[in-house]
């Protein structure tokens, strides 16, 4: 499946999940600040992506799950160790702008339509888990 084909299917998922128009779903659009996704929409998006592409997405694989360990979050900010963990777990996301202001409340802002397309592309190329 080409990147454009993946983008089209991801666009369909986001139009259904978020009630946005097709032309709003551009690769650079941010899920929260541009497409107005709320935290619970992430669960909906995960379920819809699984259905659309026929693979399973583990908790914390696409979006970060609960980060409670004080080693990773201190005073409301993601620590250097936490940032390294996020980068390791989520290679489909560009954390560079987040790293400059790593307040935990901002972490959902890093997700763009393009990062979802990258995630799906990686999943489609990786062998299915046994």
């Amino acid at each position: 499946m080409s990147r454009d084909e993946v983008l089209e299917k991801v666009r369909g998922v986001l139009v259904d999940a978020l009630g946005v128009d097709d032309d709003e779903v551009t690769p650079t659009a941010r899920l929260t600040t541009d497409l107005h996704a709320e935290s619970i929409d992430f669960l909906d998006i995960v379920f819809r992506l699984e259905k659309a592409f026929g693979f399973k997405i583990g908790q914390g694989e696409l979006f970060p799950d609960n980060i409670n360990d004080p080693k990773y979050v201190k005073d409301g900010k993601v620590t250097v160790e936490g940032l390294a963990l996020l980068r390791q777990r989520m290679p489909h996301v560009d954390f560079s702008s987040f790293a400059a202001d790593p307040r935990l409340e901002r972490v959902s802002e890093v997700f763009t339509v393009g990062s979802l397309v990258d995630f799906v592309g990686r999943k489609l190329q990786s062998p299915p888990e046994s």
């Binding site: 935290s39 669960l43 909906d44 799950d65 609960n66 980060i67 935990l104």
Partner: peptide
Amino acid sequence: IIFSHVDKNMSG
């Protein structure tokens, strides 16, 4: 309808 296990999603 989507349901959430609230303890798993509402950290903090």
